[in-house]
């Protein structure tokens, strides 16, 4: 499933989208950045409530497909600008992490059938 398809299926807000055609191959949830870097896989949708500037670096270096920010957490302008400059996709939802993960899992499982 592509990032664009995930956005449409889950009605995600697009904060900044680098590559709508990027394939989302899995998901990972976590707010501890080093933990995420150790465990998330390339191509994952990373679900988190963290929005500081280091999230962009972690997303970029881990090469996740997109970051899904939950519970409508606010994002500073400089974070959005850095994400855009580094080709990191930031999406947002009002849903809490648990619900978002379930929805992403459903979407990915549905796509693979």
């Amino acid at each position: 499933m592509t990032v664009a398809a995930l956005i449409e299926r889950l009605s995600l807000e697009t904060v900044t989208v680098a590559d709508p055609d990027r394939e989302v191959t899995g998901g990972y949830a976590g707010d501890l950045l080093s933990w995420v870097m150790g465990r998330a896989s390339e191509g994952d949708a990373w679900v988190t409530i963290m929005t500081n500037i280091n999230v962009v670096a972690v997303a970029s270096l881990s090469d996740v497909a997109c970051v899904v920010l939950c519970e409508n957490v606010p994002v500073e302008e400089d974070v959005i600008a850095t994400a855009t400059a580094r080709g990191v996709t930031l999406l947002r939802t009002e849903k809490p992490t648990f619900e978002m993960c379930a929805a992403i899992a459903d979407a990915l499982n549905g796509a693979s059938v």
Binding site: D31, L33, S34, W35, M37, N52, N54, V55
Partner: peptide, 15 residues
């Protein structure tokens, strides 16, 4: 509070 300090830095470097 920034999401670091999980005690994963050196283990990740080794991993």
């Amino acid at each position: 509070s920034l999401g670091f300090g999980a005690g994963m830095g050196l283990p990740n470097m080794k991993r």
